[in-house]
Amino acid sequence: MTRWLFSPVPRARIAAFRTLVYLFIPLDLVFFSAWIRSHGNLPGNLYQPLVAGRLLHLPTPTHLLVNAIYYALIPLSLLAATGRAHRLLGWTVFALYFEWMIIAMSYGKIDHDRYALLVALAALPTAGRARHGDQTETEAGGFALRATQIAVICTYFLASIAKLRYGGLSWLTGATLTRSFIRRGTKLARWLLQIPGFTTVSQFGIMGFELFSPVVFFVRPRLRYLIVAGFYLFHLLTFCLITISFIPHQVAMAAFLPLEKVTPIVWLRRLRSRLSPDAPTASTPANPTGQPAT
């Protein structure tokens, strides 16, 4: 088990994943979770903190607190994306985003699309130094990615358990998707409603997909990538049908991908070195001996 949890990965994969996650945080605050800022203007008696908020005695959100977190997270996340001071910046971003999530989910609505992202933010500060293009393997980085992967799969598997616990078999055979399609469905969803039995079959498919999602850990890499591609396709279809976005979850799901093969930072370094005035050109060949030309 320890060998599996700490399976080494290239440091370049950690660097790429770290950049992706931290660059997403400002986008999340500005575009995807900007509604959380309005909680700072709500009456304090509406705040019913989650268990973690109660145990940590976190303060009741105010206009000042919410905006302070908002304006601190954006620049700190951008700095963390560079990989510098990865522990200090990483833990700071995690703490602030954790409080941001407590503020978001303590007013009666709890989303589960940010759990894996929060785990990724907690794990990345432990991954150690990582540089784009560095193929040296790291066990610490492997654990950070594995923890994120487990959180991604737990999101699916535990969602299926919750469906069975609270909805029972009627979640499978009832009008679950039909109600969603009618309430917030797109034109495509309303068209699919005309197909007899489509929603019932889809409900069985969703349950099976979530219950058996842990199989992704027990297959070969090529099949694993196909399964992960299926996960992304599932969320794309969900958005096309009922406009529910799981973008934070999908960002965390990149922990399954060989991100070290996508190297824009390395490409930029090479381009900069070629454009540098000190770089050798075709008309001015390099002098490997370092001796003055005669």
Rank of each mutant, 00 (worst) to 15 (best):
M1F: 11
W4T: 12
V9C: 04
A15V: 04
A15I: 02
F17T: 00
Y22R: 02
F24L: 05
P26F: 07
V30D: 03
A34H: 14
I36H: 00
S38V: 10
G40S: 05
L42Q: 12
G44Q: 12
L46K: 10
Y47R: 01
R54F: 01
H57D: 14
T62V: 05
L64H: 10
L65W: 07
Y70F: 15
A72G: 04
L73A: 03
L79M: 13
R84H: 10
A85F: 12
R87F: 11
L88H: 05
L96Q: 02
Y97T: 01
M101L: 14
S106H: 08
Y107L: 12
A116S: 13
A122M: 12
A123N: 05
L124R: 01
R129Y: 08
R131T: 14
R131S: 11
H132L: 01
T136H: 13
E137H: 12
A140R: 14
Q149R: 12
Q149N: 07
I150T: 04
I153N: 02
C154V: 07
T155V: 05
T155W: 01
Y156F: 14
S160I: 04
S160M: 12
R165T: 13
R165S: 11
Y166W: 14
S170Y: 13
W171I: 05
T178P: 00
F181Q: 03
I182A: 14
G185A: 07
G185V: 06
K187S: 12
K187F: 08
K187L: 11
L188Q: 09
Q194N: 10
P196H: 06
G197I: 08
T199W: 02
T199S: 13
T200I: 15
Q203R: 02
M207D: 09
M207G: 02
L211I: 15
F212Q: 04
V215A: 15
P221Y: 10
P221G: 07
L223A: 14
R224F: 07
A229W: 08
A229G: 15
L237S: 12
I242G: 05
I244S: 09
S245V: 11
I247D: 01
Q250T: 03
Q250K: 01
V251L: 08
A254M: 15
E260V: 04
E260S: 07
K261S: 09
V262L: 14
T263S: 13
W267K: 11
W267T: 11
R270S: 11
S273T: 08
R274C: 03
D278H: 11
A282L: 14
A282Y: 11
T284F: 03
N287H: 02
P288M: 06
T289L: 06
